[in-house]
Design a protein around this nucleic acid. Sequence first.
DNA 1: GATGAATGAGAGTTCATTCAT
DNA 2: AATGAATGAACTCTCATTCAT
Lengths: 198, 198, 198, 198
Amino acid sequence: MKLKNKKQLILEAAFEVFSNKNYANARVEEIAEKAGVGKGTIYEYFQSKAHLFLEMHKWQMEEYLARMEKGLSREASPSENIYMLIKNHTLFTKKFNNIAGRLVDEVGFNTEFNKEHRQVMLNTYKRLLSRVKEILDTGILMGEFRHMDSQLVADVLFGTMGGISHAMILSGNKQDVEEVSRTITDLLLNGMLNKRSM
Amino acid sequence: MKLKNKKQLILEAAFEVFSNKNYANARVEEIAEKAGVGKGTIYEYFQSKAHLFLEMHKWQMEEYLARMEKGLSREASPSENIYMLIKNHTLFTKKFNNIAGRLVDEVGFNTEFNKEHRQVMLNTYKRLLSRVKEILDTGILMGEFRHMDSQLVADVLFGTMGGISHAMILSGNKQDVEEVSRTITDLLLNGMLNKRSM
Amino acid sequence: MKLKNKKQLILEAAFEVFSNKNYANARVEEIAEKAGVGKGTIYEYFQSKAHLFLEMHKWQMEEYLARMEKGLSREASPSENIYMLIKNHTLFTKKFNNIAGRLVDEVGFNTEFNKEHRQVMLNTYKRLLSRVKEILDTGILMGEFRHMDSQLVADVLFGTMGGISHAMILSGNKQDVEEVSRTITDLLLNGMLNKRSM
Amino acid sequence: MKLKNKKQLILEAAFEVFSNKNYANARVEEIAEKAGVGKGTIYEYFQSKAHLFLEMHKWQMEEYLARMEKGLSREASPSENIYMLIKNHTLFTKKFNNIAGRLVDEVGFNTEFNKEHRQVMLNTYKRLLSRVKEILDTGILMGEFRHMDSQLVADVLFGTMGGISHAMILSGNKQDVEEVSRTITDLLLNGMLNKRSM
DNA sequence: GATGAATGAGAGTTCATTCAT
DNA sequence: AATGAATGAACTCTCATTCAT
């Protein structure tokens, strides 16, 4: 089981380094150092820097997905699930410098990643999105949410979460996760309009 | 009779190249070629690649700001202004591959850009945010929007717009701007909850 | 007479810049700025940077030669002339960062200067040397100096003067010219040996 | 079984190239070629071209110092030691195009070399000088040399040796080392004056 | 004649990748 | 399997020189 350990070690080191630098600025040697292995060893487990990035990315998306699932439950109300979604995302973002969000652009705009790479990544995103859509659809079905284009709203919800990341990075990461999550959930659920004025 | 200022020509070429590649992958020579000038000429107008990027970025932020202002008016209702905001952002994003969003990460995570650079960028963002906050505050004051932490909501609104960009890129940029903007505005204004069920 | 003035202006600026940097580090633009002319103007008067250097060098050698002649006289004793030689050289060196010495190496080892250039320079040096040799020969003829290979001694004397420059630069240029010159002259005239012990 | 340490190989190549060109004209790639290594390899062993130059310089100064010590002995008379000094220096100079002398200027006037670099170099020179001064002081103590400012004379002697280099280079390096050394030693020991005329 | 904007050859340097050990 | 010394392609940037004005 040593082999699996070493590969995992490299993936973790890669994640750490790619989180703090962007793809181009991250040096393979730094990843090797952080993983405690030789530079050449990385090429035993990964074809190239791009492949390492890609595998790390896939792994992180799984991690992220698992994290998002945490706290979600069929018993909880869709609204509560939405809150958990936002909270978990915000926690994840805060912890890892919004790596998830940044990775999208990285893969999307770096010519080193070919079509195939991009497809792999897109598929992972689609899985994420379909999970969000599922929650929305459940809410609609239960009558808790009004009728809406759940696909588009899932996109937006997902996007909003990404946006929170930007906001948090820009504001210097100083905000309280619970409070931010509450406010955002409230906003998304109830909207901005003053109901009494209607 | 120069048709165009050469500095502007370079900025535009830089924008084009940086939009399609990321900072590290963009080659100075390619920018020069696209601008129709010699490699050295770029260094006549900009100290370094990083400075070129920064100036291009500042210019684009102004452009973006101007674009966002378009269609906003004191006479229009705050809700209509929110719609315009979202629509304009979506248009801009669609047109320019979400460069604005990506630039944030670029500057935020690239060690080549020092504190001073980041400050410059942050200031532009703050101007944008304060404009959004102004619209929100007007809405609150007019009683159209309910009472809320307008600062945080501005962050989120701004973030959401950024998020839309991601969504559009992921979905391959095929969506209709008007429709997307309508749906999102509606979502933000009225929320997701089914009012009748309350 | 304006033309001559401008050429001279450039030569003087070149001298100043080449004195403080070496050939490669001296920028043509800096010379132009110091001369108060445009960069292109330099190329009106000189074929290339190398030619500018060369002409500046020739001019400085003349200047140096003239400086060395100053104070020399047929009436003065050869010993006094030797003293003047050393003193003038030391003064010149101190004033101009040993540019004369450095120029030798510059021209001697820089492949940008071809054979012809080197010959021009060598000729100037030979004139200098023959002047020193003349003084020595006069001293020998007058019986003040003992019989010796005046050609070689001229080389050495000239070399010694160059060496003083190095010493002065290394020691930070703090020494008193009069005193140094006296000591050296005394050394060269009387030698190091203790005569009484013989 | 490496025949030679690779770092040493590079240093030797650097020495050869820097001896024939000056710092600015010497290309790193040429050094690499001469060393039989790739361009990148040089940067495995040295931080930069400037650092390579500096280390090469330090190494050469040690080499020079060792060369100078050769043939010197406590048993030999100070005069003989002076002769050895001059002869060894002349040999070294002749062999290596007066690189020692030229390096002084290189380091002294090239802004790429900072204060710290210069200090390192100065210290090596001071060691050289103190060795020369020691010989002089011994001679004075033994009564063979007359009383004199040994510090200044060491400077001059050292300078003279540097000067010989110039002379040899100018004269095309054709002179006989033994003869030149004899003449110079004689000049320094006995002076130029005709004793009988006093 | 005088200029300086424009140029591009050529330099130093980095770093993903290879391969002998 | 694991390594890291060695590599060279590819990059940014400088600056002598040109030439349209």
